[in-house]
Design a protein around this nucleic acid. Structure first.
Length: 533
DNA sequence: TTCCGACAGTGGGGTCGCAAT
DNA sequence: ATTGCGACCCCACTATCGGAA
């Protein structure tokens, strides 16, 4: 198939708004692909390249556009372009950037304008915007004449829609049977929705358990015989970065197992390191041995998806936990209580925070492992802190926020210096209405601007929610807010009432956490609330 | 007809590795 | 050596649309 035909048809699909029409149109394209083109086409339709990310940013693409004129007569096939992408993906070492530029330039020299636009968006990942994946699944099911439900399940287990689509299109329903959970191949992890507080979580789930929410990196560990592989939340391979986890899982007295958990590092005194410290262990190819001694990584697991030949995905949460207890020692499991009373739940939450963790996750005892979905059967509850901060500047938004001042620069008062200290930025929490209002209001207060940023007189106060204060090498005060978002504007509040750096540093020092711990100690006499109901 | 779940869009913070400077 | 960029980790919130109720 010619790229130009493909682009034209997929463009028509994107323009359709009705789901059923999209499905029919996509199915029509899929039927026209030759067996060799199926995987290429399915990936492109989903906005991906089967070669993965190519490391070509918008600058390189723009350069390729300028380097040569486009052609008028389309001649490129899917296979031609795919071969170039493979060549680009293979380039490495010194001079690789030049080779990639040359290869892309060669491709663009043979492409029409529309094809260039398509490639540019494909390389930038922009084609993913079209919410194509769920539609694609239905389209593939239709083109391959297999039931959509069995296709959806296969995609969930394979974690790779293109491969499943290829199997369905070329082999039909029989091809789909391969995609039961496969050892050493990652499954989309189950995700949690947010809940405001523990009481809400309790009322939304009937029979439930609570677990600590740890601030680390999600890991899915597979063991098949002596072979162990570990994957991240995005299904990336992280086996090399986590040797101590590999050793522990390999030594488990089971033939095969798939575990879901969180990996993090701890300080000598007990509490966990901040997330950014744990992240040092997750460089892609670095030598973990050197870091291992000074920054040992621990995994705490909370779920088991497969055990000795049996898939447990569809079993209720309580059964999976029972299986987990069979396999893992307590020190390898995330602390958990089942069927807590309201008071027990609150105490468990407070204890988790006092120990330096993010909060808790409430889990239905009945729910299966819903891979890849963010559903109500897992609810995370975290502590939200707030400060009143002043707006120092704002950046122009992009996309649907073009023409609006979107990203706010937030400052705290610094009484000692007599000014304001930049504490972070946020674009979260504003409705379209607020966005329009703040654009107008901030422009009234403008005192200068540079590329993309409008600086304003520090007069507007905004209540900001955030997760924590973390150390920052970049920010002037040495600290930055993590996950800041606007709660509401405070027109009633004058700048003199803005939170001070003294408060901010107190939070950063963990003073509040220590207070809470001491309080908890005094009230509950709480020793080792380590788990098990 | 209204309600609700899923998801895209909009970027925030960080770390590493790699290539260019 | 330093700098800049891209790939990935973590993150929250709003708007919107199709399907469920």
């Amino acid at each position: 198939m010619l790229v130009s035909d493909f682009v034209a048809t997929s463009g028509r699909v994107a323009a359709l708004s009705r789901r059923v029409e999209k499905i029919a149109a996509l199915a029509a394209i899929l039927r026209r692909l030759s067996p060799a083109e199926v995987q290429i086409g399915v990936d492109w339709l989903a906005g991906r390249l089967r070669q993965g990310r190519l490391g070509l940013g918008p600058g390189v693409v723009a350069e390729a556009r300028r380097a040569s004129p486009s052609v008028a007569q389309p001649a490129l096939t899917l296979g031609d372009a795919d071969a170039v992408f493979t060549e680009i993906a293979r380039a490495s070492g010194p001079g690789a950037a030049g080779a990639r530029r040359a290869a892309l330039g060669g491709l663009f020299a043979r492409a029409t304008d529309r094809e260039r636009d398509f490639f540019a968006r494909l390389l930038a990942g922009e084609l993913r915007q079209e919410r194509i994946e769920p539609v694609m699944i239905d389209a593939v099911a239709r083109a391959a004449r297999v039931p959509p439900t069995s296709l959806r399940r296969a995609v969930m287990l394979a974690g790779d829609a293109a491969e499943v689509a290829k199997a369905a299109l070329l082999e039909g329903a029989l091809g789909l049977q391969r995609f039961s959970l496969q050892l050493l191949r990652p499954v989309q992890p189950m995700l949690a929705q947010s809940a405001d507080d523990v009481a809400t979580a309790l009322s939304e789930l009937r029979a439930m358990a609570l677990e600590w929410k740890l601030d680390g990196v999600r890991v899915q560990a597979h063991k098949a015989g002596d072979e162990v592989r570990v994957f991240s939340r995005g299904l990336g391979p992280v086996t090399k970065a986590v040797p101590e986890i590999v050793e522990i899982v390999r030594a488990l007295p089971v033939r095969s197992v798939v575990l879901d958990g969180e990996a993090l590092t701890f300080r000598a005194e007990g509490p966990p390191h901040p997330f950014q410290v744990t992240m040092r262990r997750f460089g892609r190819a670095h030598d973990a041995a050197a870091l291992r001694a000074e920054l040992p990584l621990r995994a705490l697991f909370f779920d088991v998806l497969h055990l000795d030949g049996e898939d447990l995905l569809d079993r209720p949460g309580s059964e999976r936990t029972a299986a987990l207890r069979q396999v893992l020692d307590r020190s390898l499991r995330v602390p958990r209580i089942e069927l807590p009373t309201a008071a027990e739940a609150e105490a468990f939450f407070a204890d988790a925070l006092a120990r330096g963790h993010e909060g808790v996750i409430a889990k239905s005892l009945a729910a299966p492992y819903e891979a890849g979905r963010r559903r109500g059967s897992w609810l995370k509850v975290k502590r939200a802190r707030t400060l009143d901060l002043v707006v120092l500047a704002a950046e122009w938004g992009t996309g649907r926020r073009r023409g609006l001042l979107s990203n706010l620069h937030l400052g705290a008062r610094d009484p000692s210096a007599g000014g304001f200290v930049l504490l972070g930025k946020t674009f979260k929490g504003m409705s379209d209405e607020v966005l329009a209002w703040q654009t107008q209001r901030l422009l009234e207060l403008e005192i200068g601007r540079d590329a993309g940023t409008v600086y304003v007189r520090p007069e507007i106060v905004v209540e900001v929610a955030f997760e924590d204060v973390q150390a920052s090498p970049r920010y002037p005060g040495g600290v930055v807010l993590r996950s800041a978002r606007v709660r509401r504007y405070r027109p009633d509040k004058a700048v003199e009432g803005v939170s001070t750096m003294v408060e901010v540093r107190a939070i950063h020092a963990g003073a509040l956490a220590r207070e809470a711990a001491e309080k908890g100690q005094a009230e509950g006499g709480g020793e080792e609330l380590e788990e098990d109901g």
